[in-house]
Design a protein around this nucleic acid. Structure first.
Lengths: 154, 154
DNA sequence: CGGCATCCTGTATGATACTG
DNA sequence: CAGTATCATACAGGATGCCG
């Protein structure tokens, strides 16, 4: 059984155009290991530079430039805040656009958990029922979509 | 409204360990632009080397080494086939493991289509009803899972 | 057609040291 | 704490040419 979309594209070759494919455009913004790890940390609630560096296991240099890029791209905001009696600090917080990337992160995590088993490994579950989660393709009408039901159009 | 998992992790710092995070492990395998583009083409039904090169817009060198890596990682198979009277050729076909990565590709594509608009851009829809598709997080019990219902455990 | 060999550039990342 | 500056390494990717 091969999983294909053969014949469903009017002109597959047009997909080759560099900035035409949304996958490629997305990869331009978050296609680095460091960006993904920083977004993972932001989703976990990390907001401070030092915590990003330590928890994502990045150097300050990498974390600094990548965080700036993510802020510029609108995935994170850098906001000043001041607790009473403390100096001003900055916190990095996910924007709605950044939060929209979470299905992607979950999809990556679910694939790795299933196909690249490793001990120990964190797993992700539904708080309501405890069942493990995965990403699925669904249409706006709520139907589950399998690969052979997926069509692309320009 | 911030989308966070704050406090849901027993020890966020443990996530920093290099090969502990499934996102990072997955990225080791498919964390390059070329790998994603080749998998996209495989999903579109591309099977021959030359078509991969042209449609993904890669050089032969890159396509060659990346295809080999994807075969070694079990995402593609390289199989000989021979049409009557023709010489033996090879075709690259998605394995079930490779097909399992499709939700990830759709998630990346959906994010780019929404947040990095570009004309023209292909869109993806459900063949059955024509509605656009997106990746959704779902638990094994079939419940839709929102970010704040997502828990991680080691 | 389906590659491999070679050379080259850009960038992602790391290591270390320093600053306000 | 939150970075910047500098140096060094590894790898992705492009360009060109050759081969069975």
């Amino acid at each position: 059984m091969s999983v294909q979309l053969e014949g469903r594209l009017a002109n597959p070759d047009r997909m080759a155009r560099p900035d035409f494919c949304p996958i490629e455009r997305t990869f331009k913004v978050v296609g680095t290991r460091s960006a993904m790890l920083l977004l993972r940390e932001a989703a976990y609630g990390t907001t401070r530079f030092d915590d990003f560096v330590r928890r994502a296991g990045l150097t300050e240099t990498v974390a600094s430039s990548r965080l700036r890029e993510l802020v510029d791209a609108g995935l994170l905001t850098k906001e000043p805040y001041r607790e009473p009696g403390q100096r001003t600090r900055y916190e990095y917080v996910l924007t709605p656009a950044g939060a929209d990337l979470m299905p992607t992160l979950v999809a990556l995590a679910a694939w790795g958990a299933e196909h690249l088993p490793h001990q120990p490994s964190p797993s992700y579950a539904h708080a309501g029922c405890g069942a493990p989660v995965a990403a699925r393709i669904e249409c706006a009408a709520g139907h589950a979509v399998t690969m052979d039901q997926l069509v692309a159009s320009a």
